[in-house]
């Protein structure tokens, strides 16, 4: 809530007021009430379901309510590969959305086409529609997607429309390992040595 100048703790019967800019208040409200339109075309959809489910629970960020009409939504999730044949549909859905609207490219295919470097696939949805946040990964982990959502919320609060890319996180399992690889060892290795 850093944008609404600061929080004031009131005690007992005290009353008070806070001052802020109207735009900041509006953006603060917008960033916690993103109504999403899930445009799901491929395997990233599985990861999206996980994200929307109770374990990762994007309801915590006020972004869980899907609206299956673009006219009622303000965040377009493009989840998966977009083929050339689908491009007009995606473009039209984007155009049907009301302002203000944001677009989130979920996964490598939506971001840049991924390894589909061929006649059938659009090399990134930004070739067709403006994109606010790119989330790399094939598919991205739900944590990465939450990072992307927080990045978007931050951008909404600042009123910033420059595209952002989610940075990779370091995997805690690999910390402290020189090769950056997790070592898998069998428990029975000592038994083998006895033989």
């Amino acid at each position: 809530m850093g944008e609404v100048n600061r929080s004031i703790v009131l005690e007992g019967n005290e009353t008070g007021f806070a001052t802020t800019k109207f735009d900041s208040l509006l953006n603060w409200a917008r960033k916690y009430s993103l109504f999403q339109y899930p445009f799901i075309t491929a395997c990233c959809g599985m990861e999206f379901m996980s994200l929307a489910g109770p374990r990762f629970d994007i309801a915590r960020f006020g972004a869980e309510a899907p609206r299956f009409s673009p006219r009622q939504s303000d965040l377009l999730w493009v989840v998966g590969t977009i083929s050339q044949r689908q491009a007009p549909a995606l473009r039209r859905i984007y155009e049907q959305m009301m302002e203000p609207k944001w677009v989130l490219a979920f996964g490598t295919c939506a971001s840049c086409g991924g390894f589909y470097d061929n006649y059938a696939t659009v090399p990134g949805i930004d070739k067709i529609i403006p994109t606010d946040v790119y989330i790399p990964g094939c598919p991205p982990r739900p944590e990465a997607v939450i990072d992307g959502l927080l990045l978007l919320q931050d951008k909404i609060a600042r009123g910033d429309r420059t595209p952002g890319i989610v940075k990779p996180r370091e995997d805690v399992a690999t910390l402290g390992n020189v090769n950056g690889l997790v070592k898998l060892e069998k428990k029975s290795s000592s038994k083998k040595a006895e033989r």
Partner: peptide, 29 residues
Amino acid sequence: DYPAARTQPLVAYRTEAEAGLPLEKLAPF
């Protein structure tokens, strides 16, 4: 004999001037 990199978009691609950022990606191959 179909060129591997030939695409035939149905929607005209946005230009970089329109997008305000580079849209060319590194080729995967």
